[in-house]
Structures are given as C-alpha cells and as structure tokens.
C-alpha cells in the first residue's frame, strides 16, 4: 500500500463505502431472522391466519409505507444540502414510526381476541409483530439521534453517512413488513 492508496483509504468517501458494505451485510444477516419467522409461520399455521383487525392492519401498513417516502425525501434533501426538508422529513418519519408502534403494540395487541399463550396462532402473531416492532423501535431511536444531530447541524451534503444509514435501515424495516403484512393479515383462511 503506497502512501497514495492510504490517503484514499482514509478519506470520508472510502470509509463511507466501507460502512455501507458493513450495513448491508448486517441487513442480510438480520433478514435471516425474519425469514426464519416467516418459515415458522407457514410451518405452524399453514394456510390459516390469526383473526385480526383488518382496517387497523391496513392503516398501519399505509403509514409505514408513507414514512419510507418521507425518509427518502429527507435523505435526498441532505444530499443536496437542504437542511430544512431533511429535518422535516426525518421528524415526520419518526412520528409515523411511533404511530405505527402505537397502532400495532398499543392497539392491535389489545384488540386481538387471543393472547400469546393461546396456541400457535397467538405465539406466531405476537412473535412476528413483536420482533418487527422491536426493530421499528430501534429505528425510531436511530432517527431521533439523527434528528438531534441534524438540528445541531452535524450533517452536510458531503458528510451524512448516519442519515444514509438510518434511511437504509428504515427502508429495510419497511420491506420486512411488506412480507409480514400479507403473511399475517391476508394469506389463508381465518382460524384461531
């Protein structure tokens, strides 16, 4: 490694590239948990699904999808140096995320006519939504950190790796839900 390469390697851009690779590998790894949960769901419940509140499910799903749109907007904004749109987008995403959490954990969990210990349906439903909600929660915390640091002006068009990471993570959580929603709410006949 000549001095030349080592200069390139200590640059912010090269390090961001390294970080990006690390993040994607982490998501790949995490995807295996969710895949395992999906497999368990079909293994145990087959072509049946738990009895759930359809309207609520649809609402929270739409909210989560919309939040991804705002997250994307925030990220594009900071890449162009637009602090205001960036901050607003992050805040909206964060709020939508919290509403999603309240919707699933605060409302759906209470409305469900079964509990976690009521057989395989309950177990699968609470495990899947719980693991997903846990990820949403970490995403929300991540967004809060990004928002706070953003207000302090720590991000710029050139240096905003943390924003990118939060955004990618958020989209990942969103994509997971795109698989979970039909698996829990749409596929199969109601039972349990």
């Amino acid at each position: 490694m000549s001095t030349n390469t080592s200069d390139i390697r200590s640059s912010y851009a090269y390090k961001t590239g390294t970080n990006r690779l690390g993040l994607w590998l982490f998501l790949l790894s995490d995807a295996f948990v969710f895949a395992g949960l999906l497999v368990s769901r079909f293994y145990l419940l087959g072509n049946t699904r738990p009895h759930l509140e359809q309207t609520l499910g649809l609402i929270v799903t739409v909210l989560l999808l919309v939040s991804s749109f705002f997250m994307n907007r925030a990220e594009t904004a900071i890449a162009h140096g637009d602090q205001k749109t960036f901050l607003n987008g992050t805040l909206i995403t964060l709020i939508l995320g919290v509403v999603f959490l309240v919707g699933v954990v605060g409302v759906e969990w209470q409305l469900a006519p079964f509990s976690a210990s009521d057989g395989a349906h309950g177990a699968v439903f609470y495990m899947m939504t719980g693991m997903h909600a846990f990820h949403v929660l970490t995403g929300v915390i991540f967004l809060a950190i990004v928002y706070r640091n953003g207000r302090k002006g720590l991000y710029s068009a050139e240096k905003h790796w943390q924003v990118e990471a939060a955004a990618v993570y958020w989209h990942f959580i969103d994509v997971v839900w795109i698989f979970f929603y039909p698996a829990l709410y749409l596929i199969g006949t109601v039972a349990g």
């Binding site: 790894s29 948990v33 395992g36 368990s40 145990l44 976690a116 009521d118 177990a123 609470y126 495990m127």
Partner: peptide, 30 residues
C-alpha cells in the same frame, strides 16, 4: 454471518415458550 441468526431464533422461541407460554413447540397448543 447469516446462519447464526437461526439458532438465536430457535433458542429465543423456546425461551419465550417457557416465559410467556407461547406454544411454538408445545403439541398441546398446536
């Protein structure tokens, strides 16, 4: 990187079965 997640998940499921009565592997609960 990838496969380890599944042993974690399987162990977690037994732990939750014991703690919260979630019946993943309990024949009496389906």
């Amino acid at each position: 990187l990838t496969a380890t997640q599944l042993i974690g998940l399987s162990f977690q499921m037994v732990m939750f079965q014991r703690l919260f009565g979630m019946g993943f592997f309990d024949p009496a609960k389906g």
